[in-house]
Design a protein around this nucleic acid. Structure first.
Length: 311
DNA sequence: AGCACA
């Protein structure tokens, strides 16, 4: 079967210059997490030999990229939709939409640090944004951080007298549709519902993915090669799930559990990278058997035991 | 808002 779903679509505008996703070996997803947070990027190690450890009066002036570049947005995307997509992720600071008539729309989302940016990237990359246009967004680190954030020590653009005195480094960029409010998010239905009468026989082309990004919420477990699948309908079968998940690269095994109450399933992949791809792309996917919301995917708490290994 | 199997 075709096993090339997770590849993002080709660039569509000249402004798109983000690099392709890294191979599994080098992906930050596969990086072994250490504590609380899920995705530890190749965190800048204490490069200095160990001498000047605690002498710094200010936090490390990391120039790390902490801005995400979002492409694949439909032309009629609203700034609030982008905001709603990212606002719930920890470390979110602001987002900025550029929607032009001629070129495809693109957006930037600024986070407090690269780690939180990468977490949001992993969770949103590849997710369906507009079902009618059947377009899914792809998210990468931007080439550079959005300006008008806290300027670095020498910023010649200081000429402006407006003192950004927002707490916690939240500043505004003054550009057109910059969104950084923290209160409301009620654009819940800017997307039409899932294609109700559609026969979702083949998810690749016709299955409704997450129908509303604004209600998308990140999950908490650290990355695991096994996924936990919940919110399945009573009529959902293991066969149906296997048909969906087995098309993804790195798929190994699916086990459904239907005995105790709500049916759930566990899907094992080769590695964190493969499971992450499947999670991102199938989050909220509507199956034939689904009723309303579609299935909910999380990293499992522990990996599926693989006793048998054929060779 | 629910995480088993070895």
């Amino acid at each position: 079967m075709a096993a090339s779903y997770y590849h993002p679509p080709p660039p569509h505008s000249s402004s798109y210059a983000a690099p392709p996703p890294p191979p599994p070996g080098t992906s930050p997803y596969a990086y072994r997490h250490q504590h609380h947070h899920a995705y530890l990027p190749p965190a800048p190690p204490p490069a200095y030999g160990g001498y000047f450890d605690l002498a710094e009066p200010h936090p490390p002036p990391r120039d790390e990229l902490r801005t995400l570049f979002i492409a694949g947005l439909p032309a009629d995307v609203k700034a609030r939709e982008v905001y709603n997509l990212f606002r719930d992720f920890p470390g979110y600071v602001s987002s900025h939409l550029r929607a032009g008539k001629s070129a495809q729309a693109y957006a930037f989302a600024v986070f407090e640090d690269q780690q939180s940016a990468l977490a949001a990237m992993s969770a949103t990359n590849g997710m369906a944004f507009d079902l009618e246009k059947n377009c899914s967004i792809h998210v990468d680190l931007a080439k550079s951080n959005s300006r008008s954030k806290r300027p670095r020590t020498d910023d010649f653009s200081r000429s402006s007298e407006k003192k950004a005195r927002n707490a916690r480094g939240i500043s505004d960029s003054g550009a057109g549709s910059n969104i950084h409010m923290s209160g409301m998010g009620n654009s819940s239905h800017s997307l039409n519902g899932y294609p109700s009468a559609q026969s979702c026989t083949n998810f690749g082309a016709s299955t409704a993915f997450s129908k509303d990004p604004s209600i998308f919420a990140p999950q908490n477990n650290p990355p695991c090669p096994t996924l936990f699948v919940a919110n399945l309908a009573e009529t959902c079968s293991e066969r149906e799930l296997t048909d969906v998940f087995s098309s993804f690269a790195g798929f190994m095994k699916l086990k459904m559990q239907n005995k105790s109450g709500a049916p759930v399933a566990f899907v094992d992949f080769e590695d964190d990278y493969s499971s992450t791809e499947a999670l991102n792309r199938l989050q909220g996917a509507i199956l034939h058997s689904s009723t309303a919301e579609g299935m909910r995917l999380e990293y499992a708490k522990s990996r599926m035991g693989m006793r048998k290994k054929r060779s």
